[in-house]
């Protein structure tokens, strides 16, 4: 008999073992729901699957009576717009600042200390300030995401830039490259796939800041919606919304890997 640390599941077994917890959770939920429904027909805490399905139908496939919009899609559109805008701005700032501080020692020593201090400020604590300065509109939500993830991106890209082998930079100099040319042709292209990695790592935080901002002040958005219906204990809406947000987060992460592998094959095969 082999040691248990040496036993590896076969592919089908691994898939089956992966699915089991999901099925268990669903069964547990269904059992709990039935139990509560038996006690109280109108229980809202654990809605049945048919109730959830009705809610999904109402939110996603029936136009709202008040505005004539399909709420789920409207919320998704607004949220993704804020999220992506925030991530794109943060990525651009992070890339430019991170590469400059990483590649130019003179820039590194000044901005390094500042970034370290700024990254210590809890972004949510700044939210009131953002609402005061930028108002309750779209800007403050996007800015919260930007403020929330940019320090991380800067520090990560600064580090990734410094990790490029010194030999490469020396070699580029012996090939006659100026500082600018070396940053443009040697540093930047190699940092790009690392930026994709860093964005993926910061996606969780970006969602957190988005939902927090929407919960406090918004008129649409996924985060706004779940906090709105919370007042009516509408678990039949909240649960599918949470699953939908999870799916979106997963798809975003997945497509970032796909794109990165497509544009930077040398990065992913070399590792």
């Amino acid at each position: 008999m082999k040691r248990i640390i040496n036993l590896r599941p076969s592919r089908p077994l691994a898939v089956a073992l992966g699915i089991v917890p999901f099925i268990l959770i669903l069964m547990l939920y269904s059992w709990g729901s039935d139990l509560r429904k038996a006690e109280n027909e109108r229980d809202k805490l654990l809605p049945s699957f048919t109730e959830i399905q009705k809610a999904v139908d109402r939110m996603a496939f029936t136009p709202s009576k008040r505005t004539g919009e399909y709420l789920l899609w409207q919320d998704t559109k607004s949220s993704l717009k804020r999220l992506l805008l925030g991530i794109v701005i943060a990525a651009m700032v992070g890339l430019v600042v991170g590469v400059l501080t990483g590649a130019i020692p003179l820039a590194g020593s000044h901005l390094g200390a500042l970034t370290t201090v700024v990254s210590m400020v809890p972004p949510l604590a700044l939210l009131p300030i953002l609402f005061i300065v930028f108002g309750l509109g779209e800007v403050s939500k996007v800015v919260l995401i930007v403020i929330g993830i940019t320090p991380f991106l800067i520090r990560d890209l600064d580090q990734r830039t410094r990790e490029l082998p010194q030999e490469q930079l020396v070699k580029a100099q012996t090939l006659g490259g100026s500082s600018w040319q070396i940053i443009l042709r040697v540093v930047l292209p190699q940092v790009m796939p690392r930026l994709m990695d860093a964005i993926r790592l910061s996606l969780g935080a970006a969602w957190l800041f988005l939902i927090a901002a929407e919960a406090i002040a918004a008129t649409d958005g996924l985060g706004y919606r779940i906090f709105l219906v919370r007042r009516y204990l509408a678990m039949d809406v909240i649960l599918p919304y949470v699953m939908w947000i999870t799916t979106l987060a997963f798809l975003l992460d997945w497509s970032l890997i796909r794109v990165s592998k497509m544009i930077f094959p040398w990065y992913h095969t070399a590792k």
Binding site: P165, E167, Q168, K171, P189, Q190, F264, W266, Y267, A270
Partner: peptide
Amino acid sequence: QKYSVFPH
């Protein structure tokens, strides 16, 4: 000895 070429 190493790292003299550009991987990208």
